[in-house]
């Protein structure tokens, strides 16, 4: 489980959120690169070649989509449970901030 970040400092909390944002965008680039390039290269009809099946699916589906999907699942679990930090969301915890809940 991730470390707690309940410092009561909004600036620290904001910088952590921004760090998580950068990680997330970088992950998106990696997964987009994998699926788009692999399927783009391997997914087309190959004249004269028999259809290659893996687990009952076309080969390009397994290596270009299913396997990255499983990795994506693993990364999401790790990101959520290890990388992302808890933050106190209550505005009363920050100096100079007071929510106007439900007005």
């Amino acid at each position: 489980m991730s470390d707690d970040l309940q410092t009561g400092d909004l600036g620290v909390s904001f910088r952590q959120s921004r760090k998580e944002l950068y990680f997330m965008v970088a992950s998106w680039v990696v997964f987009a690169g994998w699926t788009i390039s692999y399927v783009g290269l391997k997914g087309g009809i190959k004249e004269g070649e028999a259809l290659q099946l893996v687990w009952g699916m076309p080969e390009w589906v397994v290596f270009g989509i299913l396997i990255p999907w499983i990795f994506g699942l693993g990364l999401t679990v790790w990101f959520a449970l290890r990388f992302m930090k808890d933050t106190d969301l209550d505005p009363a915890a920050y100096d100079g901030s007071n929510g106007e809940e439900g007005k």
Binding site: S13, F14, S17, E20, L21, F23, M24, V25, S27, W28, F31, A32, T35, V39, G43, V61, G64, I65, P68, W69, G72, L73, L75, T76, F79, A80, M84, T87, L89, D90, P91, Y94, S97, G99, E100, E101, G102, K103
Partner: peptide, 30 residues
């Protein structure tokens, strides 16, 4: 399968992008 496969990282991206900050800022703003 290629058309929909972006969903492999939707929970990471769509929730990771805004969720924590949007909750925090909306509470501050009321």
């Amino acid at each position: 399968a290629w058309w929909i496969c972006g969903y492999m990282v939707v929970p990471l991206v769509a929730l990771g992008l805004l969720a924590k900050r949007i909750n925090q800022v909306s509470r501050i703003a009321g």
